[in-house]
């Protein structure tokens, strides 16, 4: 890790600080997971007693209380919290699919084609990206409600998905990746008589695939955690995502930390696993998105 000659007091000190910081950053997650399986008596801190750093006994009580309210989906009985989890997955997967499809097509032509109005369109995308997306929350809600989407459970979920798909970051990212496509390859495909769509799918797509992966994982995680939009659009209990569901539990029963932690674990652990599996793509996406085009 360290070259012998750089073993100065400074490097040792910074290694120690880094390790301490890592503990500090990992701790909240540890506290969520262990809190979710602690008994009530472990959660309360009694004066004069040690805090329970490790659960004395693992219990699923908190999860049982969280799963008490039931609901139905496609004719299957299930706890409400599982329905929320399903909604989170549904919203993230659909948003991911739509974003990847629309952005890779748009990014490709913005990087590789010459056409009238290209500068203007790209400029609009970039300008919109610099603006705060939460300030459009109110008009978005009015728009979705006048489109009639907020009346139904599934409609309101799409009211969360559409603005995520419209956000221009994906187009910007895919344009960056599409710059790598050699124009000579596209030219060769054209001379061979391949249609535009086939050229895109067979020549361009294999080259921009890493970008596609980065965008997919990025969009998945972002829409999973897109809280303000969910808060405004998903008013019916059956339409809530897991994060929003936990947030509403927090206002109902703010003292039942065990139950809240069970919910937080349910919201955090799946997305962390997804992140760890696709970490490589993710890092690539962040760095590519920052390079100025």
């Amino acid at each position: 890790m360290l070259k012998k000659k750089s073993m100065t007091p400074y490097t040792i000190l910074s290694a120690v600080i880094l390790a301490a910081l890592a503990v500090f950053f990992l701790f909240p997650l540890y506290w969520i997971v262990t809190g979710s399986v602690k008994e009530k008596s472990d959660i309360i801190i009694k004066s004069g007693e040690m805090v329970k750093w490790i659960p004395t006994r693992i219990t699923w009580d908190n999860y049982q209380r969280l799963f008490k309210t039931g609901t139905e989906l496609f004719g299957i009985q299930m706890p409400m919290a599982i329905r929320w989890l399903f909604n989170s997955v549904f919203i993230s997967v659909v948003a991911m699919g739509l974003t990847c499809a629309t952005s890779s097509l748009a990014g490709y032509v913005l990087a590789k084609k010459r056409f009238w109005g290209k500068g203007l369109i790209f400029g609009l995308f970039v300008c919109a990206m610099a603006l705060p997306k939460q300030v459009i929350l109110i008009p978005l809600m009015s728009e979705m409600s006048s489109l009639g989407l907020l009346k139904s459970v599934w409609g309101s979920m799409f009211a969360v998905i559409f603005p995520v798909v419209g956000w221009p970051f994906g187009v910007f990212l895919m344009k960056q990746f599409s710059e790598n496509i050699p124009s000579s390859l596209l030219e060769a495909a054209r001379i061979d008589g391949a249609g535009e769509l086939r050229t895109f799918l067979e020549v361009a797509f294999p080259i921009i695939k890493p970008g596609f992966g980065a965008l997919a994982i990025f969009t998945f995680i972002n829409s999973w955690n897109e809280y303000p939009l969910q808060l405004v659009m998903l008013t019916q209990n059956e339409a809530k995502t897991i994060s929003l569901g936990i947030a509403s539990k927090l206002s109902e029963m703010s003292n039942d930390f065990g139950l809240i932690m069970a919910g937080a674990a349910l919201a955090a652990v799946p997305i962390i696993i997804v992140f760890l599996c696709f970490q490589k793509y993710f890092t690539q996406g962040i760095t590519m998105g920052a390079v100025k085009g």
Partner: peptide
Amino acid sequence: VTGSVAVTVVWKWM
């Protein structure tokens, strides 16, 4: 990645 909701509720407890 954990998300602002899960992070905030655990801090609320702490």
